[in-house]
Every structure is written in structure tokens, then in C-alpha cells.
Design a protein around this nucleic acid. Structure first.
Length: 426
RNA sequence: GUGGGCGUAGCUCAGUCGGUAGAGCUCCGGAUUGUGAUUCCGGCGGUCGUGGGUUCAAGCCCCAUCGCCCACCCCA
């Protein structure tokens, strides 16, 4: 019978890799606590309509990448392709943003039905931050500064570049988009096939086309700057001023558009050349209109998300993963014979009572002395404890350092905890 | 959705012109009765992705199919 394998594009995180995930998660959680952000956890399934109305029906994500299924009682549900929409939904549903500011963060799996490749999977994980109730650019800057701090903390700041743009107010953007589409439709024949397709789906992306004929045509197209509202311009100027003052380097990229409809004003991406085709590690922006669009009282919002898998790929390629996170053990307890096994079990429990931070593994499953010692070595433990018949009689145990130069010593049971503490925490 | 590359032991991979399936690592045992790592010897481990075809003979050639990887596209 054929073996069942994991679903395409969805991966197991095996014990060898889990410490890297724990390390990254711990670093990001600490970052959020440094800035006073609070965690929010929402379900991974939402009503399909939530994503259609927030992300936009014309986007790739909604049009062809969602895992959607019908509910037993009718209606359509979707595995979340991102978390901002769910966050907004929850915040509105519980009135969290009513006359107050919220700084929130989340972490968890997201789902998009795409062809898998490097840095792109169908189930992937994001950390994200969302802020509600602040319309001034100081919060835009704070959100960017905290990501910059994370890159420094992880030692990957050299390979990441900040791309920055402003999309203007929602109305300015819609007006421009309509003008651009009208212009391009009139010149349809001059467009490459890719761009012709994008005209219906994501017209602003056409500005980024690599086709030379298309680029030539774009020289005569409406210019976005002419449509930008004054408020957005000054918002953007202030953001840049704060970033300059904080000595955060960035590149203004007028072609930075982002593929989700809800963005307005500030958008940004942290990108790298070290990950192949999927170079965006973190991206985000402002979405002042979204909450009202979903039926709430008009409230400004802004946020970012980072791809954990991409972050980990980058850490590995930079060799920035600390080596000491992988060793799970301090002590391996060897026992010979059924009487020793009984005593060892009790001894192990007693040590865990006395030294709650001690990482101790009791050898189980028998085997001769030699094979147990071999397992102790392979386990990565710093110290082996040897309990056999001779030791039982004397109520002592052999303490054998496996890594350093220390000598093997005979230690009385009652002094074991103190002794271990001394040799393990110098 | 469209291209290109690749599927051989648990893992990493050799396999020449079509001629009975290999190595290293891991694991187990021995050299060494209760002292690991190094060394040496031995052992376990295979539907060569799957199905069909050509052939006296297929891991190798042909067709189909499934899977994985990379890229386009898109995004984190």
C-alpha cells in the first residue's frame, strides 16, 4: 500500500530544526515585549467573505491562492492566507479599537495555494504586528525601527535593504489606477502579454514590467506623483525624516506597489538578494480605510508581516544560527540491572525536584554498559552518571564528564545535586 | 497555471557500452566481562517513484503517470 505523505507544499519541522524555530520565536517575542505590543490569537479559519472584502477580489491571493471549502451548514470558509484581515475582524468584533490605541502582534501558520519553490510553501508562518488608532507617521517609523532592531539582533542587517513608497490616500490611488488603466487599454497592442493580463488583475504592477516596449509606452503614461494628495506627501516626508534621524537607510521605490488592495500611504518591504527569487522577508504598510471597509468606525491601521521560513533560510545562509541552541541535555543517567533501574528512576525525579533547570535524561530500555555509555555520548550530554551494582551498595554514583577534561568522580547520592550544580554552572 | 532539472538503502550519493544492486554516514554486534569519542572486523538495511513497452537481458532505452526541486508569476 502506498505510504501517505505530507500535503504538497506543507512541511514537517523535525526535531533537528525545531531549535532554530524556537530561537527565532523567542527573539521576536522579546522584541515585541520591548515595544509594549500585546499578543492576539485568532482562528486559522475565517469566513471567505472576510478575505474577499479586505484583500480584494482582483488580487492573486484571493483569486487563485485560497484554500476555500464549504461549511457543513452552507457558506464558505477559508484557511487564512494572511492575518491582517482576521486581526481587524477580531478587533472590531470586540471593540478593542473603540476610542483607543492597540499595538498587537501575532504568530502562526498561513495558507496559500501556490506552486512551491524556495522560500515559498503552501503552509508558511508569519510573525506580524498591527497598530490601530494612530494616523501619524511616528507609528509608521516605530514599526520599521522595530524590524531594523530585529535584524541587528539576529545579525542579518547587512543583507537586508529597506524599500519604501507611498501609495497616497485610497481615493488618490483609485483615481490614478483608473486613469492608468484607461491609458493602457487605449494602447493595449503595445503591451507585452504579461502586462495585458495584469491590466485586469493588478494594473499598478505593470509599472514594474521588464518588457522594453511596455516601458517605452509607460514613459507617456499618467504619473502617480500628479495624483498624490498633499496629506500623503507630508506624511511620507515626516516618516523619511524620522528614519533619517534614526540612521535607518532606505531606498524610495516608486514601483513598490504590494499586491493586497487594502494598503494606502506608507508601504515598505525588507528584501534580500540571498534567498533566490523570493527576496521579501518582511513587508507591510498602512491600511487606514480597511476597518471602515469591513463595517467598523473609521480607524487608522498599519502593520507588517514577516515570513518565518524566509527568515530562517536567511539565518542559515548567513550562518547566523547560534550553535549552542541545539544541545538538549546536560546529564545522561546510565543504570545497570533492574535494581539500579528502580533507584535511577527515583534519583532522576529527585534531581529534577532539586535542580528544576537541569536537563536530565534517564537511560531506558536496558543494554550493556558499553552501549549505554555510547548513547550517553551521542546524546550530547555534558555529563554521564553511572549507576551499577557497586555504586548501589555504596550509595554513590560515578560522575563522568563527557566533554571537558574533568576527572570521573564517585559522589554520594545526597551530595549529587550540589555537585552537578557546581560542575555544570561554573 | 507555464517552463527546466531530478527521483537508487533511514540520510548523502556512485552506478561506465543495457549483462545478477554499490559506497559513506546512521544503527546493531565483535576486537575490549563495568567505561563513550578514534581505529579495525562483521552484520542489519532495496518493489532502483509507479505503471506499461522494447529486448535473450532494463537502475540505464521508449511512453505514460506521480512526486520533489528551481524558475516564471505572486507574495511573507
Amino acid at each position: 500500500m502506498a505510504k501517505i505523505k505530507a500535503v504538497r507544499g506543507m512541511y514537517d519541522i523535525l526535531p533537528d530544526q525545531a531549535p532554530i524555530w524556537q530561537f527565532v520565536e523567542q527573539q521576536v517575542r522579546h522584541l515585541f515585549s520591548q515595544y509594549g505590543y500585546r499578543e492576539i490569537r485568532t482562528p486559522i479559519i475565517e469566513k471567505t467573505e472576510l478575505f474577499c472584502r479586505s484583500i480584494g477580489t482582483g488580487t492573486d491571493v484571493v483569486e487563485k491562492e485560497m484554500y476555500t471549502f464549504s461549511c457543513r451548514k452552507g457558506g464558505h470558509l477559508t484557511l487564512r492566507p494572511e492575518a491582517t484581515a482576521a486581526c481587524v475582524r477580531a478587533v472590531e468584533e470586540h471593540g478593542l479599537a473603540f476610542n483607543q490605541v492597540q499595538r498587537l502582534w501575532y504568530n502562526g501558520p498561513m495558507f496559500r495555494y501556490e506552486r512551491p519553490q524556495k522560500g515559498r510553501q503552501r503552509q508558511f508562518h508569519q510573525f506580524g504586528a498591527e497598530v490601530y488608532g494612530i494616523d501619524s507617521p511616528d507609528i509608521d517609523a516605530e514599526l520599521i525601527l522595530m524590524t531594523a532592531r530585529l535584524w541587528r539582533k539576529l545579525g542579518i542587517e547587512q543583507v537586508l535593504q529597506l524599500q519604501l513608497n507611498t501609495l497616497g490616500s485610497a481615493s488618490a490611488r483609485t483615481a490614478y489606477r483608473a486613469e492608468l488603466v484607461a491609458f493602457l487599454k487605449a494602447n493595449m497592442s503595445a503591451l507585452d502579454t504579461d502586462s495585458q493580463r495584469r491590466l485586469a488583475t493588478n494594473p499598478l504592477r505593470i509599472l514594474d514590467s521588464k518588457d522594453t516596449a511596455t516601458q517605452a509606452l509607460l514613459d507617456h503614461a499618467p504619473v502617480f506623483l500628479d495624483y498624490l494628495d498633499k496629506e500623503s506627501i507630508s506624511h511620507f516626508a515626516r516618516l523619511k525624516q524620522i528614519l533619517d534621524d534614526a540612521e535607518i537607510r532606505y531606498q524610495v521605490n516608486p514601483r513598490l506597489v504590494r499586491g493586497l488592495d487594502y494598503y494606502c500611504k506608507t508601504v515598505f518591504e525588507w528584501t534580500t538578494d540571498d534567498l533566490g527569487a523570493q527576496g521579501t522577508v518582511c513587508g507591510g504598510g498602512r491600511y487606514d480605510g480597511l476597518i471602515a471597509q469591513l463595517g467598523g468606525r473609521p480607524t487608522p491601521g498599519i502593520g507588517w508581516a514577516m515570513g518565518v521560513e524566509r527568515l530562517i533560510l536567511l539565518l542559515k545562509s548567513m550562518q547566523a544560527v547560534p550553535a549552542d541552541i541545539f544541545n538538549p541535555l546536560d546529564v545522561y543517567l546510565i543504570n545497570l540491572g533492574s535494581v539500579a533501574a528502580l533507584v535511577a528512576q527515583k534519583l532522576a525525579e529527585s534531581l529534577r525536584d532539586q535542580l528544576p533547570d537541569l536537563r536530565l535524561q534517564l537511560h531506558c530500555g536496558g543494554g550493556d554498559f558499553k552501549s549505554q555509555l555510547k548513547k550517553a555520548d551521542r546524546s550530547g550530554a555534558k555529563v554521564a552518571l553511572l549507576l551499577g551494582e557497586d555504586e548501589l551498595v555504596q550509595e554513590q554514583i560515578q560522575v563522568k564528564p563527557l566533554r571537558g577534561q574533568g576527572k570521573q568522580q564517585n559522589i554520594a547520592f545526597v551530595e549529587l545535586a550540589t555537585h552537578l550544580q557546581q560542575i555544570l554552572c561554573p
